[in-house]
Design a binder for these strands. Structure first.
Lengths: 150, 150
DNA sequence: TTGAGAATGAGAGTGCGTTCTCAACAAGCC
DNA sequence: GGCTTGTTGAGAACGCACTCTCATTCTCAA
């Protein structure tokens, strides 16, 4: 647990990020648990994963609370939604810069990658056919280290 | 209509591809209309788009027929499903080789790209962290030529 | 031409992610 | 401590993509 991407990213930001809430937002235990779960994750989480992990931190909480807080926190710019092909929406903490995700074919987990983006070269380019590129979505698939070693 | 990607791809394959059905599959007018609609499209289509376009070719047909044929044709290897982030499943004719898609932010259309793949370099590579890459999904976003000129 | 059975169409049904409702609770200002 | 009001939890409700049902129609081998 000491060198997971989550542990590293948490350390890089100085730890107790989960208390950084906009001033007009009440600091409830549920909200803090949701942010803590996102902070400790190695990649973006689905609402159901978040429900599970936040419940492990906080006691128990309702699915409606998770959805409500995701909407509120996204609007406040604290978190961002992550869409992967053929997957339900996931969420991760905002402010992590441009990065992509890796999805393990075996455990179906999604992880944040630190690899430099191979698609950046196309940004702003007009492709043959006249398509003006303004953004991209890249997901890598394969086997995560945990599943390979298992 | 004479130089769309669809027209070009159709011409490249010699035209009346839509009659190439597996021998154990009955050649109904609905089935032919579905394949013709896919053949004439500039990119993958959703079941509803397909319903609309096949109906324009054939008269009218039911949504269940579209879904049933998509499943049958996919199983037969005639078509492939295309998953884009935050979009419902789309379908395109099989055998078009490795390519990616461009989604227009304005008209929300999805187009097939002929651009060489910038991610191929990562195929088979093990990334820092131990992630073994075995595949990828890339979608480019921006403005299509039609919307830019409009 | 005919008959078996594959395919169709319309609409009801299903599954799943997400949102709404409303009474009870709790954060935070006075 | 008391009060205001934002927040919560449980479950019903919703929306949408997709599948099933079944009577009818159509394809195609014999």
């Amino acid at each position: 647990m000491s060198d997971t991407p989550a542990a590293r990213s948490s350390a890089a930001r100085g730890g107790a990020r989960s208390t950084d809430l906009p001033p007009d937002m009440r600091r409830t235990s549920q909200r803090r648990a949701i942010l803590q779960a996102l902070d400790e994750a190695a990649g973006p989480l689905t609402p159901h994963q978040l429900l599970e992990r936040a419940a492990a931190i906080q006691g128990s909480l309702g699915l409606a609370t998770v959805y409500r807080n995701l909407a509120t926190l996204e609007e406040a710019g604290e978190i961002v939604a992550v869409h992967l092909p053929n997957e339900t929406r996931r969420y991760e903490l905002a402010g992590r810069g441009h990065h992509h995700h890796f999805r393990c074919d075996q455990c179906e987990g999604v992880f944040e990658l630190a690899t430099t983006c191979p698609v950046a070269v196309l940004e702003g380019v007009t492709l043959p056919g006249g398509y003006e590129v303004r953004g991209h979505a890249l997901t890598l698939y394969g086997v995560c280290p945990r599943c390979r070693d298992a």
